[in-house]
Simulated scan of single mutants.
Amino acid sequence: MGKSANRYGTALLELGKREAGTERLQEAAAAYRAALKEGTRDRLPLDWAATQSNLGNALSALGERESGTERLEQAVVAFRAALEEQTRKRAPLDWARTQSNLDATLLTLGWRETGTARLNEAAAASGAAYRAALEERTRERLPLGWAQTQYNLGIALMVLGERESGTALLEEAVATFRATLQEATRERVPLDWAKAQNNLGVALELLSKRDGGTDQLQEAVAACRAALQEWTEERAPLGWAKHGKIWPKRLRIWAGARAGRRRQWSAQHPDHGPVKTPRAGNALETRFRTRNLGTVWPLPVQGDFRDIPQKVIARGADGLR
């Protein structure tokens, strides 16, 4: 009964990750809790710990889709319970996986808080923990596990790098996401590949803001475009919806940087006369129409995107059709 419920929960968890709702994830959490009633810690300590870790994964996935922190806090409790049995000495690979998931959940919790103290603390602690986990989840022993931990390390480095004035941590984050993509290939794990491509684009954008260059912006757009090849509305509605929300910002920044280069060139070559800078809508429309993105997504004007004119959004969407 316990093992069957655990396997059932895992199947529901994988389905739930691909769907936009939370019903499957809630069912997965219930299945894991049922498994824990059968496979107790006293009888089967390592099996109990594995189920606790799986429960943590289901609760963490639920917490990411909800606005509160209750599910995330519950996930932290489950992961820490699992680690009481999954010690590094006793079960090094299980320890590395659960520790990595715990740190990722703590980072998400830090993001939810209004202050930055917990987020900075979680990022610093998780960065060290991920490096330790990589000593066990090596590329040779567990290539996809290694890629997952590399990805989580990249997130931690990006969080820390965004809050520091230099570029070293952001550059390391970019390198870490590129390393992830060496094993998390599109052929093997297409949705994880898309997720890594997306965050590579985010890190490149942050890096371009820091050093004022535009090469990284073009790479960022290319990475986001690559992710959309797998994050389609049919295959991954949740990733498709999330990814669509950051595209207006990516393209607005790219268009602004391009216009800035034109103005800078005109200032350096006064004898030539001013170079006409196209309106933002035209710049975005041209960029869209020269790229066959193969999908259309909603472009909401909210949060950071409220200052984008509606006609620019409309033109961008038209260019994607």
Results as ranks from 00 to 15, higher is better:
R186Q: 14
W240T: 09
C224W: 03
A50H: 01
N101P: 07
M1A: 13
R88Y: 02
R18M: 04
R18H: 06
G161V: 14
L144H: 03
P309E: 08
W146Q: 05
L102R: 02
K195Y: 09
R112I: 08
A267M: 04
A226I: 10
Y151F: 14
G115Q: 10
G63R: 01
T290G: 11
L206Q: 13
T98H: 08
L160R: 13
R139T: 06
R33T: 08
G39F: 04
S266A: 15
L191A: 14
R289K: 12
A267E: 14
A61L: 01
R139I: 02
Q99G: 14
S100W: 07
E219F: 13
R24S: 12
A283K: 01
A175M: 12
A280D: 12
L62W: 01
A175Y: 07
N6L: 04
R41I: 08
D318V: 13
R139Q: 11
L191V: 09
H243G: 13
G316Y: 07
T290W: 03
L12P: 00
T22K: 01
L206I: 06
N57D: 15
V77Q: 10
N54D: 11
A96N: 06
A78L: 05
W297I: 11
A82M: 07
W48H: 13
E162W: 00
Y32T: 00
T108M: 13
L284T: 12
Q264L: 08
G127M: 02
N6C: 12
E172Y: 06
L62E: 01
G68A: 07
K195G: 11
A226C: 07
F177Y: 04
Q229D: 06
T22N: 06
A34C: 10
G260K: 04
G166T: 15
K245M: 05
A257W: 15
R315M: 15
R225G: 11
V76I: 12
L207W: 02
D94H: 10
A317G: 12
R97L: 05
V189F: 03
R263A: 15
T87H: 11
A267K: 13
S208P: 07
L83K: 02
W111D: 12
L13W: 03
T277K: 15
G127N: 02
A29V: 06
Y8T: 05
E164I: 00
A223P: 09
P237C: 14
L62P: 00
L83V: 11
A259I: 09
V76F: 04
L106I: 08
D215I: 10
I253S: 08
Q229Y: 02
R163F: 08
T290N: 10
W240M: 07
W240L: 08
M158Q: 12
E187L: 11
T286W: 10
I155S: 14
K276E: 10
A156V: 11
A314F: 10
T87E: 11
T295I: 08
A91T: 01
Q310I: 14
P190A: 01
D192C: 13
Y151L: 07
E171T: 14
N120I: 11
A91I: 03
L320H: 06
E285Y: 14
R7Y: 04
R289G: 04
L238A: 00
A78W: 01
G68T: 07
